[in-house]
Amino acid sequence: MARTHRPKRPRRRIPRALVVVGAIVVIAALIAAIAVVGSLVTTLFQTLGARPPAVDTRIVAPDESKAAQAARAGAGDADENAAAEWLSTQPTTYWLTPEIDPVDEVWDRVAHLAAEARDQKAALSIAVYGLPDRDCGNHSAGGLDPDAYREWTGRIGDALRNASDIQKIVVLEPDSIALASSCGSIQDRAGYLRGAVDSIRGTNTWIYLDGGHSSWHPPAEMADLLRATNLLSDVRGVALNVSNYQDTAAEFAYAHALSDQLGGIHAVIDTSRNGAGPAGSEWCNPAGRLVGSPGGSYGDGVVDTNLWIKPPGESDGECNGGPVAGTWWPAAAAELTREQR
């Protein structure tokens, strides 16, 4: 049987331009794949390398703190200027408020603080303080409406996630939970805080809810308030003694009592102004107080560390001769630092 010879099909030549384009597409795809893998590896290492705050944690000394602004202005007497200068160098939590850092500016503020953290080889510590019905109409009354609060905390969270390479400590809404029983708004506040936690959490970000202090609510009562938020599984723990003057030892004991009742939560303790202890039950600008131990001095299995959260030299409110809450008060700064200069 004769073999049939099929005619050969003419060989098509692929235009050189198409070959080049195809090669570029393949190379671009490979580069993109490598970038994705690299990003995943970087995120994995950042996640594995994330460590909670601990003894020796050093936080940023913000260059735009009110102490730093007062030091640059130099408008006080010799003691007041020296106090401002010294306080401006101390690692202290920066308070984000919508009055000073509104929604269209807060991203830039957090980015600037993150850059400072890199320069200072420090952690970033911020207090987020813009809750609707903030401070229940007391000295620090204010805050945002619910929709604006959601947008504001969303911008904060975006900026924090953009700084995944540094450690971030977030003290979320001081006094918000401890005040809730007197404001009658625990469920409303829990809803706002839930939105804030969802917006803010991310890699190497350690969130602490308001835990009051040892002379406010008994541990069982405070534990019930915290439990009612349904947030404890989504945060690191609680912040204690914020803007107050209680002894460090009393706050350690309180932290352990709360942790025992709440399944082992952790805490940070504010020691910015408790160097002379409390002044009885007076919490609003009591006289004769002193700055406390520097942040990063103490910690144990429950207390991650102490920090300076309330900036020394800022008023608690219009009481005992003080100006509006949060305002720089040169005389108070001088008194608080009288043994440091």
Rank of each mutant, 00 (worst) to 15 (best):
G295D: 10
D247G: 00
P15T: 02
I14Y: 00
R16H: 02
A148K: 10
G191D: 15
Y245F: 15
V19K: 14
P53H: 08
V21S: 11
L30P: 00
L262E: 06
Q246W: 03
P132I: 03
A190Q: 04
G212V: 06
F252A: 08
P311H: 10
R51C: 00
V110L: 12
L44R: 10
P10M: 12
G22S: 05
T337N: 02
A163H: 06
D198R: 14
R134K: 15
P312W: 05
E335M: 10
P62G: 09
G211C: 09
G212L: 07
I186A: 14
I207P: 02
D108S: 15
S233M: 00
A196M: 05
D104I: 04
C319G: 03
S215P: 00
H5M: 10
D188G: 06
L44Q: 04
P218C: 05
L225N: 11
R155H: 13
T248F: 01
D79K: 13
A250H: 12
A228M: 04
V242S: 11
N138A: 15
K66W: 13
P174M: 12
L172P: 09
V103N: 12
R227F: 02
G264C: 05
A29W: 07
L40T: 06
T97Y: 09
N81K: 08
D260I: 04
R194F: 00
I177A: 03
V20Y: 07
S164V: 11
A250G: 08
A68V: 08
G191M: 07
G130T: 06
